[in-house]
């Protein structure tokens, strides 16, 4: 290497820029929730999918399969909670795609060079997913009522249903947010999501576990979705959810804790080169 010649330095300016103040967790979270909400509202296709797909699913199960599954015609009351949970999965899956996009487009890398708590970008995705899924859920329940679903739940039970579903959506969204971080592309992220969407089928969502082959009983009874569904079903029927609610809540908090811990570990280590 040759010796660098000394070039004349520019006259020192007295206008050295001052450091940027940056933002705290609250300001940054608020900004990212606003961003993710705009994303949700502008991605009309995803929003439609989040609402239309569960609607279709409900119509198919009640009108196409319903007769065969339950000839007496009371299948609607049984299946609605299952549809609602499946729909929560649909809506949450796009969180993985959104997070993977932020990783691959350099958005998260840029945030990491700024005086910003960059992890709050995930908070934005999760909160927007919660809002999106609660909206989709409300539409599905409304449609179910239109085609004859008659829940016996009182105000208190409804409140409990909303809280439980909110918790479930939060749990599944944190899992998808983590998958989005791990995926190497938005396409792969949506692929991971697909696997998770099969879980409701191997639960008591659409048919009672007792009707499944015996080797599946253990899994179907003890996987997290079954207690959530059983508790929701009981609440909508106006009866006490019993032990199901507690198991469901424990599952959800457990999943959130594990997914959040993994995310906190992976996020700072995951940098696109």
């Amino acid at each position: 290497m040759s010796a660098p010649p000394t070039t004349p330095t520019r006259p020192p300016t007295d206008r050295t820029p001052s450091p940027a103040p940056g933002s705290g967790i609250l300001t940054a979270s608020a900004a990212f929730v606003g961003r993710a909400t705009r994303h949700s509202l502008r991605d009309v296709e995803a929003l439609l999918m989040a609402v239309v797909l569960p609607l279709m699913l409900m119509l198919v199960f009640t009108y196409v399969f319903g007769g065969a599954i339950s000839p007496s015609g009371d299948y609607l009351d049984y299946v609605v909670p299952g549809i609602v949970l499946t729909c929560a999965g649909f809506g949450a899956a796009s969180t993985a795609v959104g997070v993977a996009q932020d990783m691959t487009t350099g958005t998260i890398n840029r945030l990491r060079t700024m005086p910003v708590p960059s992890g709050t970008v995930l908070v934005g995705h999760v909160v927007a997913s919660l809002a999106r899924n609660l909206l989709a859920t409300a539409v599905v329940v409304l449609a179910a009522v239109l085609i004859g679903f008659r829940p016996a739940a009182g105000a208190l039970e409804w409140l409990a249903v909303v809280a439980l579903l909110g918790l479930y959506i939060l749990a599944i969204t944190t899992v998808f947010a983590m998958l989005g971080l791990l995926a190497h592309s938005p396409e792969a992220a949506s692929g991971y999501g697909f696997v998770l969407l099969f879980l409701p089928y191997a639960s008591s969502a659409f048919v009672p576990v007792a009707t499944m082959p015996s080797w599946l009983h253990g899994f179907a009874e003890h996987q997290p979705i079954t207690p959530v569904i059983e508790a929701t079903r009981a609440l909508l029927a106006g009866s006490p959810p019993g032990g199901h609610a507690l198991v469901a809540i424990l599952w959800c908090f457990g999943i959130i804790a594990v997914a959040a811990a993994l995310t906190a570990y992976v996020f700072p280590r995951r940098v696109a080169r």
Binding site: P17, R38, T105, G106, T107, R110, M114
Partner: peptide
């Protein structure tokens, strides 16, 4: 991070 800015090789702007 309070004192620098970075413009990466691929425009990190939000398309939506």
């Amino acid at each position: 991070r309070h004192r620098i800015s970075v413009t990466g090789q691929f425009a990190a702007v939000d398309e939506v």
